[in-house]
Design a protein around this nucleic acid. Structure first.
Lengths: 152, 152
DNA sequence: TTCCATGCAAAAGGTTTGCAATGAA
DNA sequence: TTCATTGCAAACCTTTTGCATGGAA
């Protein structure tokens, strides 16, 4: 995170929030793992390596703040843990990344293009008169790589 | 539930499970509210009107059993509660109903045709080589009825 | 009679909150 | 100096589990 860290500090100040070591550390953990979905516990463990004195409550509070600032995206796989990843766009508004392909073999999580969903959402508006403003799409299956590995 | 109840009793017996008053009562609550998504607590409250002595643990255990028998579908809106509805198809296999339109105004939950998703899933296979075997799709927005009510 | 199912209460487990101490501005 | 933030522990809250009792087959 080159200037990303400075942008974060600025964003905190702009929102009347204080720049703390813990907040920087938590964002760095997420920012250094783009596309990786971490649980609060996992973030906690990562941050503890550098700052053993941090508490899990701070992690939860910071996650909530980062989520409100749209710096991270939330993913719930219904396994009892909520996961977080750094948001592709560090800014506010639109373009969430709440659609995932989840491989049942390797567990990897892929993103796919928004425009595929836009088509779906247009057709739903046409057929049902329902206008979609947000979505959470989880598609479970088998990724190319895992299918290539299997010969049966 | 005319002959549905008898089918349920049969299904229980076929699976080596006993027919109990509680199990019948819980299925009746769900079966009498098709398309309505109830939390465990709500099911508990409904059943208690007829059988005040029932325990919440029985509700949870029965829900789990009904889910395994594919008699009910699960819906998680990430609000801290898992919700359940009677499954459209009383039988096993395929055709789950894990895709919903959720109206942000009235809170109503709509289902939409599977074929719209099939198109999406085909295009994902074509573009990414990912084969979808199951899905959980939640589209949030505004239903026709609520939009008709608004003039702004 | 057998043993699965139930009700109660306690436990589990991720997340939130209260509060005094700490530290950024 | 001020007051937002932190760490700790306790509280929360939905769901699960242990166990003795009850009831279906």
């Amino acid at each position: 995170m080159p200037d990303g860290k400075e942008q974060f500090k600025l964003l905190l100040k702009q929102n009347g929030l204080k720049v703390t070591t813990q907040r920087i550390a938590i964002l760095e953990v997420l920012d250094s793992r783009p596309g990786i979905h971490l649980t609060a516990e996992e973030i906690y463990d990562c941050v503890k390596k550098k700052y053993p004195e941090i508490g899990i409550a701070t992690v939860y509070r910071t996650i909530q703040m980062l989520s409100e600032l749209n710096l991270i995206d939330k993913l719930n796989l219904d396994d009892g843990y909520v996961r977080y990843e750094i948001s592709k766009k560090g800014t506010e508004d639109t373009c969430h990344h709440h659609h995932h392909l989840i491989c049942l073999d390797c567990g990897r999580i892929y993103a796919f293009q928004d425009d595929l969903l836009e088509t779906l959402e247009e057709r739903i508006k046409e057929t049902m008169g329902f206008t979609v403003s947000d979505h959470e799409v989880k598609l479970y299956g088998h990724c190319q790589e895992c299918r290539d590995k299997q010969f049966y």
